[in-house]
């Protein structure tokens, strides 16, 4: 028996919106720790890892560890039946091939019961070792989102360069080139507006903008984003989900031919 109840149902809607453009189908892993997912995009260039800890739910019951294979697009369709202020309950029984979503309006005057078919999904779980990164940039997630959107109108790739001067995002395309530098700014009174750069070594890495732009669909989950970089390693773009966990995106770099 698996049952979880999330009073802030819009959070699940936002989490699925943050995944659906990257991943088609995924196994959701349910255990006493929480509700988690690890999945790659179809070309195996990017990976998303989601963790929603059990303590973050109003009710969380998971009698044994198991996986539920779901189509993310279908899940997004089902969640469209939920209003933003609805309370969401997800239920599944052992051995069944369906999952039930229940949406309750805050005043309890409307209850929707939605059943969705589960899928058998063959997926590799990758081991991601804990790593020390050469540079870690924390910045407002909206700022990062608008930089990626702006640069993707000019070029297909973004080169992220971290130095003592700050972090520079640059691109080049047929119509021209652009670069945007953000300097460290920790003096702001609002911590969510700060840009903080921790650098052990200068790093320069290039990534496909189409993936990075997809990651910024998670912007509404967190006011800050953390970008962790090391030479010749995938970048990690992390959005913390308050009191619950995180969504982390990993993207392999592009290298010169």
């Amino acid at each position: 028996m698996f049952e979880l109840r999330l009073v802030q149902g819009s959070l699940l809607k936002r989490v699925i919106d943050a995944i659906k453009d990257l991943v088609n189908d995924a196994n959701f892993d349910c255990s006493s720790t929480g509700f988690s997912l690890q999945a790659m995009d179809s070309s195996h260039v990017a990976l998303v890892a989601l963790l929603l800890r059990s303590e973050g739910f109003e009710h969380f019951r998971c009698d044994r560890t198991f996986s539920m294979g779901m189509s993310i697009a279908n899940m997004a369709k089902m969640l469209k039946c939920a209003s933003n202020d609805d309370i969401i309950t997800i239920k599944a029984d052992d051995g069944t091939d369906t999952v039930t979503f229940m949406f309750e309006s805050p005043s309890q005057d409307k209850i929707s019961d939605i059943e969705m078919k589960l899928m058998d999904i063959d997926s590799d779980h990758l081991g991601i070792p804990d790593a020390e990164y050469e540079a870690i940039v924390r910045m407002p997630s909206t700022e990062f989102g608008s930089i990626c959107t702006s640069l993707s109108t000019i070029g297909d790739t973004v080169t992220i360069a971290v130095s003592k001067q700050g972090v520079t995002f640059s691109t080049k395309g047929d119509i021209g080139s652009g670069n945007i530098t953000c300097r460290q700014n920790s003096s702001t009174e609002k911590p969510e507006e700060a840009t903080i750069i921790e650098m052990k070594e200068p790093v320069v890495l290039t990534f496909a903008l189409k993936y990075i732009t997809t990651f910024t669909k998670a912007t509404s989950l967190s006011s800050q984003v953390t970008i962790s970089l090391s030479s010749d390693m995938p970048v990690v773009v992390e959005y913390k989900i308050a009191e619950m966990g995180h969504i982390r995106y990993y993207l392999a770099p592009k290298i010169e031919e």
């Binding site: 790659m40 070309s43 195996h44 260039v45 990017a46 990976l47 590799d124 779980h125 990758l126 081991g127 991601i128 790739t157 290039t206 496909a208 390693m233 995938p234 990993y250 993207l251 392999a252 770099p253 592009k254 290298i255 010169e256 031919e257």
Partner: peptide, 14 residues
């Protein structure tokens, strides 16, 4: 430009 590497070039199945 450049060659796109795969995430599986870095992380192995666990």
């Amino acid at each position: 430009g450049g060659v796109q590497l795969a995430i599986t070039d870095y992380y192995r199945s666990s």
